[in-house]
C-alpha cells in the first residue's frame, strides 16, 4: 500500500503555517530557571531545552492536523528540523539534566516519525489515539478461510516433501503467493480510499466526540487494517518457505 507521496488536495499544518499548539496550554515554568516558557522547545529566558508537553500526540508534535494523507517530503523536512533541535550530539556540553531531556525528546521524536512515516502504522496510531478501538491485531478475513487453510496444507506438504515432490508444492505455493498478494493489494486500495474518506470528515480535535460517520470510518479502517496485517504475515510466511527450498 502506498498512500503517499501523491499529494492530495489536503494540506498539512506546516504548509498553512498553522500551529496546532494552543499558546495558553503550552505555558509552563522552565525546569532550569523557573521563568514562564512560551516557546515550544526552548526557554525564551535561559534557552534551556524543554521537555515535551505530557501527552503531546505525534500529529501535534509534527504540527500536522489529524490527517492520514501526509506529504512524506514535508514530514521528513520537519523531522530533520526537530532532530537538529533535540539531538544529544548537540547537548554534549550541557548539564546532565538537559542531556537527559535531549535524549528523551529525541527518542519520542524518532518514535513519532517511525509511526507517521508508515501509512499503516499512522492509521493504527490514529485508531488508538481516538480511543475508538484498542489495538489492531492481525485477523484473517472470514471470506478467505478456506483459501488460507489450503495454504497451510501446502506449507506443511512442502516441508515434508522429498526433493522430487518439492517442485509440485512450490508451484502451488507460488500461485498462493500471487493470490494473497492480490488480496493484500486490494486491502491496501481500500485503506487508501478510507484515508481519503477520513480526511474529508475534518476531525480537528481528539476529544472522543465523533459523529457516526467518523466512528464508522474508524471501525472500517480497523477491520481492513487487521486483515491487511494478517495478509502481510502470510505473504511473508510463504516467501520464507519458498526461499528456504529455493
Amino acid at each position: 500500500m502506498n498512500i503517499v507521496p501523491e499529494k492530495s488536495g489536503l494540506k498539512s499544518g506546516l504548509d498553512e503555517g498553522l500551529s496546532f499548539f494552543n499558546k495558553e496550554e503550552t505555558k509552563r515554568p522552565c525546569w532550569s530557571c523557573e521563568s514562564e516558557v512560551e516557546d515550544l522547545y526552548n526557554c525564551s529566558h535561559c534557552t534551556a531545552l524543554q521537555q515535551f508537553l505530557k501527552d503531546t500526540d505525534y500529529f501535534t508534535l509534527f504540527e500536522l492536523g489529524y490527517l492520514l494523507t501526509i506529504d512524506l517530503d514535508v514530514l521528513e523536512k520537519q523531522y530533520y528540523v526537530l532532530s537538529r533541535k533535540f539531538h544529544p550530539d548537540y547537548y554534549q556540553k550541557t548539564s546532565e539534566e538537559e542531556q537527559m531531556i535531549s535524549l528523551e525528546n529525541t527518542a519520542h521524536l524518532t518514535r513519532a516519525y517511525r509511526t507517521l512515516k508508515d501509512p499503516k502504522k499512522r492509521m493504527a496510531y490514529l485508531i488508538q489515539l481516538t480511543g475508538q478501538e484498542g489495538d489492531v491485531p492481525a485477523a484473517a478475513p472470514a471470506e478467505l478461510f478456506e483459501e488460507i487453510l489450503e495454504i497451510q496444507e501446502h506449507l506443511e506438504a512442502l516441508e515434508a516433501a522429498s526433493s522430487d515432490e518439492q517442485a509440485q508444492w512450490m508451484t502451488a505455493l507460488e500461485a498462493d503467493l500471487e493470490a494473497m498478494e492480490g488480496h493484500r493489494d486490494a486491502a491496501g486500495e481500500k485503506l487508501k480510499a478510507l484515508s481519503f474518506e477520513w480526511d474529508g470528515l475534518e476531525v480537528f480535535r481528539i476529544d472522543h466526540s465523533y459523529s457516526n460517520q467518523q466512528r464508522n470510518c474508524l471501525k472500517e479502517m480497523q477491520r481492513i487494517l487487521s486483515h491487511d496485517s494478517y495478509l502481510d504475515r502470510i505473504v511473508e510466511e510463504i516467501r520464507e518457505a519458498l526461499d528456504e527450498v529455493g
Binding site: E104, A107, T110, R111, R114
Partner: peptide, 11 residues
C-alpha cells in the same frame, strides 16, 4: 522496538 528503528528511541 523493531530493527532499523532510528536511535535514540524508546518503548
Amino acid at each position: 522496538i523493531p530493527r532499523n528503528a532510528t536511535i535514540p528511541t524508546s518503548a
